[in-house]
């Protein structure tokens, strides 16, 4: 996984609340057995008409936002299914971070496994950043994971919280599985103990 340190880029405003995983990547694209290539279908039903033409009004189709690396979103982003295709599609498009007041639990976790940083900020901060994002391509936001800050284009700084372990893995591009396998002895002894306490499992 790619290491995440800082991102300076264009932020696309998506103020809609409850943007669900079916919107992020509709189910017709879940039939892949690969992880890559989903970026063109990110937000497919909002982004293209039935004939496959771009809908000009949709934010990521506007010239200013075609290279967006950040999304500033309404409440409860990523609700719905557990499909990791949602962060795969975001990452493949080039999105590095999503900022909202809240995220659905599974989506939030899935982001970290794919080099995307979901940032939770209070409503007032998201409101400011949403306005900033609406300024278009000239307004670049800066996200610094080490310092845990988002800096708006006018220099206003917002600090955010992130779990220390998740931060560590993201900053170093670490593979969870490898880390856990180092604890194989603990898993063995847990299994031995559980096997006596709850043999029917």
């Amino acid at each position: 996984m790619e290491k995440f340190t800082t991102v300076t880029g264009i932020a696309a405003p998506m103020p809609l609340v409850n943007i669900d995983t079916d919107m992020i990547i509709p189910k017709v694209f879940l039939k892949t057995i690969k992880r890559s290539g989903l970026g063109v279908n990110l937000f497919d039903e909002m982004r293209y008409d039935r004939q496959g033409n771009e809908i000009p009004d949709f934010v990521l189709n506007k010239p200013a936002y075609r290279d967006a690396q950040i999304i500033v979103a309404g409440d409860n982003f990523g609700c719905g299914s557990s499909r990791e295709h949602a962060p795969w599609a975001l990452a493949d498009f080039g999105i590095k971070s999503v900022i909202s007041t809240s995220f659905a639990d599974i989506f939030y976790n899935n982001c970290f496994k794919n080099g995307i940083l979901p940032i939770i900020l209070p409503q007032e901060a998201v409101d400011v950043l949403m306005k900033d994002a609406e300024k278009g391509a000239n307004a670049r936001m800066e996200i610094n994971l080490e310092a845990q800050t988002v800096t708006a284009s006018d220099g206003q700084v917002f600090a955010f919280e992130v779990d220390a372990f998740k931060k560590h893995c993201l900053m170093n591009g670490l593979d969870d599985i490898g880390l856990t396998m180092e604890k194989a002895a603990s898993i063995d002894s847990y299994e031995a103990k559980a096997g006596t306490l709850r043999p029917w499992v």
Binding site: P87, F165, D176, I177, T180, I187
Partner: peptide
């Protein structure tokens, strides 16, 4: 529910972080 990276993690380790 878990994501696919976590599915892989559980398959390999029978645990979840």
């Amino acid at each position: 529910g878990i994501g696919t990276s976590e599915v892989e993690h559980v398959l390999a380790t029978q645990t979840l972080i």
